[in-house]
């Protein structure tokens, strides 16, 4: 799934390490999320939304065609 994590992170001048520490995951997970290689759980999505003070929909780009909807 495509995300706007990198864009939001850079806008707020936050490093991958700082973001990882804030949401309680490893830096590798943040890298995988930014590259769209790993889909976050609902809990992690909420934590990220809280960190960036936005909604989950603003962070994660849901592709209807990819999901066959």
């Amino acid at each position: 799934m495509d995300t706007r994590i990198r864009e939001l992170r850079k806008a707020q001048k936050v490093t991958q390490d700082e973001l990882a520490e804030a949401v309680g995951v490893t830096r590798q997970t943040i890298i995988s999320l930014e590259n769209g290689k790993y889909n976050a759980s609902l809990i992690l999505a909420h934590k990220l939304a809280q960190f960036f003070q936005t909604t989950i929909e603003e962070i994660f780009i849901f592709n209807m065609e990819e999901e066959n909807l």
Partner: peptide, 10 residues
């Protein structure tokens, strides 16, 4: 953090 990381669990 390493052991609780959801990606590592997956």
């Amino acid at each position: 953090i390493y052991e609780s990381d959801e990606r590592n669990i997956a």
